[in-house]
């Protein structure tokens, strides 16, 4: 009995010691990022929130008086239609990215083999190039004097240049082109993790490939689809560079309106309240998406 006690006692001491010890790891690791988040994300947001309830003077200067006017103006005025348009474009982009991304991710995950890394890089690497530069390239290709029009004219297929640039269509293509990688990556990850024998089992049990997609592939990659949709929808909704460069004055999104208020109109409170409204909308959508998609994801995790 004596010896057993002796053998176990140092260990139990150790456990007690561990409990008492102050853990420096958490502040050490979390400190810098917390500082950055508070200083450069939360603080500016609070400032913008503060600005959005202020009045504007005759010459655009900020008047430090409380008002709900800016918010009311957004909800009743013409910017509502811009919100709806942005929402529409974001939904459209997300759906198109899903439709394009699914087969892409599926074939890379199943049949990529040794080319998998190369194929994934071909999708990801372009997104490392600043997207301003890529959009200028897009302009060069689709412009009135662009590569496509020149090619078609040279071959006599058309007599007059097609109007592609500054149309809603080209904005849509630009948005899909810009944000597609963010859809393909999580979808690919979801399908990579799927046991190939599950698909074979479904086939063996009598499922036609189309049925198999809806009964096995789709439900099992739902998490990836939701993650991808969030990653595409949110930046698209707030995008302003694509409509500004490719849409000209024809296509207006919330981002453009905010930029316009800040820079051209110089109305900081009005721009701030627009930005806050945009952020609030996105947070609401994000919340709904997680609440809607998270339930099943949680079930799978347990």
């Amino acid at each position: 009995m004596e010896t057993i006690k002796n053998a176990t006692s140092p260990q139990s001491d150790l456990v007690v010691k561990n409990k008492k010890k102050f853990n420096v790891e958490v502040p050490l690791y979390m400190g810098p990022i917390s500082f950055l988040l508070v200083g450069f994300v939360f603080a500016p947001l609070l400032i913008i929130l503060f600005f959005s309830f202020l009045k504007t003077g005759l010459y655009g200067e900020i008047v430090y008086e409380f008002t709900m006017g800016n918010i009311k103006e957004i909800l009743t005025g013409g910017s509502g239609i811009v919100f709806l348009n942005s929402f529409y474009l974001a939904v459209q982009t997300t759906i198109l990215c899903l439709l394009l991304g699914y087969p892409l991710a599926y074939y890379i995950a199943r049949y990529g083999g040794k080319w998998k890394v190369l194929l994934i890089s071909m999708i990801v690497v372009p997104s490392w190039v600043a997207y301003l530069i890529r959009l200028y390239a897009f302009k060069t290709i689709t412009g009135t004097n662009g590569i496509i029009n020149n090619f078609l004219m040279d071959w006599g297929l058309i007599s007059e240049p097609l109007t592609m640039l500054y149309t809603p269509g080209v904005v849509m293509v630009g948005l899909v082109y810009t944000w597609l990688p963010f859809m393909v990556l999580p979808l690919h990850a979801a399908m990579e993790g799927m046991e190939p024998s599950l698909l074979e089992a479904a086939t063996d049990l009598g499922a036609h490939p189309v049925r198999r997609f809806f009964r096995i592939t789709l439900p099992l990659s739902r998490g990836g689809a939701i993650a991808g949709s969030i990653l595409v929808f949110i930046p698209t909704m707030g995008d302003w560079l694509v409509p500004a460069l490719l849409g000209g004055s024809k296509v207006m999104m919330v981002g453009n309106l905010v930029a316009q208020k800040f820079t051209i109109a110089g109305n900081i409170p009005s721009g701030s309240s627009l930005a806050i409204m945009l952020a609030a909308t996105l947070i609401l959508i994000l919340y709904l998406a997680i609440k809607w998609g998270g339930k099943e994801a949680m079930e799978k995790l347990v």
Partner: peptide, 14 residues
């Protein structure tokens, strides 16, 4: 395979 009159039990159950 989805029309053949045989069925397979996989090693990892699937």
């Amino acid at each position: 395979p989805y029309k053949r009159n045989c069925s397979i039990v996989f090693q990892q159950h699937a």
